[in-house]
């Protein structure tokens, strides 16, 4: 897999604010995504990791052009996403859903679902489309006999294969996979991960792989972005994130991975009892109320924003802009 240097997909200083209801004197905003920049090169798999409410789903939707960010821009092959026609965006970047039960129209057959994108784009005649749908079934490893079945007759893993087949119908360059295996059983999870890996090498796909499961991300991703309350607090190549995590939050997340290890017990993450609330961001570093190694400056001053290939937004990290200052 070659990785050309120019990014095929860029997120530049994107923010997303939601208004939480306004009174006469005061308006409250929820900053779901706060000044996020990311790049994706051809063949890369960017793991996007974080807990619920950290903004990773909002970010994924912004990347798909489903939400217009309140600030910043997304660029696809150098062009602003907002300027690219709807159908062209659809043929370049597609989405794999978390819940394969909700992602398939229960009233359509598998074949109809897979050829739906072709139909919307007016590709080929009906016979061609049916032909393509059959081929896609092969590609994702589903038997041909399922083509006329409704989704209700499929298992979770089979449904997720249909979701993937549909996403591939337009031959996109990028798949945004939003927790693609978290609704599936473990024995099926590995099948879907294997399929995604095969498809990547076969079609030269790039992935944005959103997940809370760090073990899966470590296996799948070439680089990882760790998100906390709307910001990417650490970004690095996969080996660096897992081998040498810098940000205390990343370290806590890694500790929380419970690999099978009888007798190892449950690790103490030292995160305390504070629950992160995106509607009320703390002053200074947004992680400091839970941070086990926080120092006084953390509650007053926000760490310098990370740039480049590897960063950790923490006052305590050597080499981060704020530690040098």
């Amino acid at each position: 897999m070659t990785q050309s240097d120019a990014p095929i997909f860029e997120v530049n200083a994107v923010s997303q604010e939601y208004q939480l209801g306004s009174s006469l004197f005061r308006r409250r905003y929820l900053r779901a995504v706060d000044d996020v920049s990311l790049q994706l090169r051809r063949g890369e798999v960017l793991g996007l990791v974080g807990e619920s409410g950290c903004g990773k789903t909002t970010l994924a939707k912004i990347m798909m052009g489903l939400i217009q960010p309140t600030a910043g821009e997304v660029r696809l092959n150098g062009k602003r996403l907002a300027d690219v026609p709807r159908l062209e965006v659809a043929s370049r970047i597609q989405y794999v859903f978390q819940d394969p039960y909700s992602a398939l129209n229960p009233r359509h057959s598998v074949g109809r679902i897979i050829e739906q994108p072709l139909r919307i784009h007016g590709v080929g005649a009906a016979a061609d489309r049916a032909q393509k749908a059959r081929k896609l079934l092969d590609v994702v490893g589903l038997p041909q006999r399922l083509i006329d079945s409704p989704p209700s007759q499929l298992s979770g893993g089979q449904r997720q294969r249909v979701v993937i087949a549909r996403a591939l119908a337009l031959r996109p360059d990028i798949l945004v996979c939003d927790e693609p295996t978290s609704a599936l059983d473990v024995s099926v999870q590995s099948q879907i991960l294997n399929l995604l890996l095969d498809l990547r090498s076969e079609f030269g796909l790039s992935y944005i792989f959103v997940s809370h499961n760090l073990a899966v991300v470590e296996h799948m991703a070439t680089s990882v972005a760790v998100m906390y309350l709307g910001r990417i607090v650490e970004h690095a190549a996969t080996a660096d994130i897992f081998g040498n995590p810098q940000h205390p939050y990343t370290r806590a997340l890694l500790h929380s991975v419970l690999a099978p290890d009888p007798g190892a017990g449950i690790p103490d993450l030292g995160l305390g009892r504070t629950v992160p609330n995106p509607a009320q961001l703390p002053t200074g570093c947004r992680f400091h109320p839970r941070c086990p190694v926080a120092v006084p400056v953390c509650s007053t001053k926000e760490p310098a924003r990370g740039r480049g290939e590897r960063w950790a937004e923490c006052h305590l990290v050597e080499g981060s802009a704020s530690a040098a200052a």
Binding site: G157, V188, Q189, S190, N194, L197, A215, H219, A259, P260
Partner: peptide
Amino acid sequence: RGLLECLPIPGRHKHMAHLPSIPGV
């Protein structure tokens, strides 16, 4: 055995290599 093998576990499986899985339903 199958359940234990098909979990991606840091350090056990080669990065991006195929994971073992349990076929069928």
